[in-house]
């Protein structure tokens, strides 16, 4: 019930955003649920980047593969966060592709850590599908891709929500 009413409220706003913004202004990607996504991605950026920075600078030789993967994850998260904040259609597409990469990364690395634990003496952000981060790494790209896809539908049919 609450969900239905929120969609009703969001409808006209989104229509206004898409209408005049089309062509000239960048479309905002961080209205509504997008804001929550930015927050969670921001947290992951801080988590992954600071973690890998500490580990690479102090004990890189212990698990070079794991720490490098954490650093790459941090960079991908950073790019997605920036794209979401920047807005616009190019940024939306770029963020969508990066979310796909992120999902592939989390699935591949997650499987890798389970199949061959010896390659990972220490954990990465993506170990065990991101279990150490409450599975946020695997849930976030799915949610983000859904959200960014919804942006496509809204642009093609701006009146569909209203």
């Amino acid at each position: 019930m609450a969900v239905a009413s929120s969609e009703k409220n969001a409808g006209p706003d989104d229509g206004q955003d898409a209408g005049p913004g089309k062509g000239t202004d960048r479309r905002r990607l961080i209205s509504g649920p997008g804001m929550l996504l930015v927050w969670l991605y921001g947290v992951m950026v801080v988590g992954a980047v600071s973690r890998s920075a500490v580990q690479i600078s102090t004990e890189f030789d212990k698990a070079p593969l794991a720490y490098s993967l954490s650093a790459i994850a941090g960079i991908v998260y950073g790019f997605i966060t920036y794209s979401l904040v920047r807005g616009g259609d190019t940024a939306r597409r770029a963020a969508f592709v990066c979310c796909g990469l992120e999902l592939a990364g989390v699935l591949i690395v997650g499987t890798w850590t389970l199949v061959e634990p010896s390659a990972f003496p220490d954990a990465t952000v993506w170990s065990d599908y991101g279990m150490g981060y409450l599975f946020i790494p695997v849930l976030l790209p799915l949610t983000a891709m859904y959200w960014l896809r919804k942006g496509v539908l809204r642009q093609q049919q701006p009146d569909v929500a209203a």
């Binding site: 929120s6 409220n9 969001a10 961080i30 209205s31 509504g32 649920p33 804001m35 929550l36 927050w39």
Partner: peptide
């Protein structure tokens, strides 16, 4: 974000 999504962000 002056909607319920702002509240959810703070909750998160």
């Amino acid at each position: 974000e002056r909607t319920r999504w702002g509240s959810i962000t703070v909750a998160a």
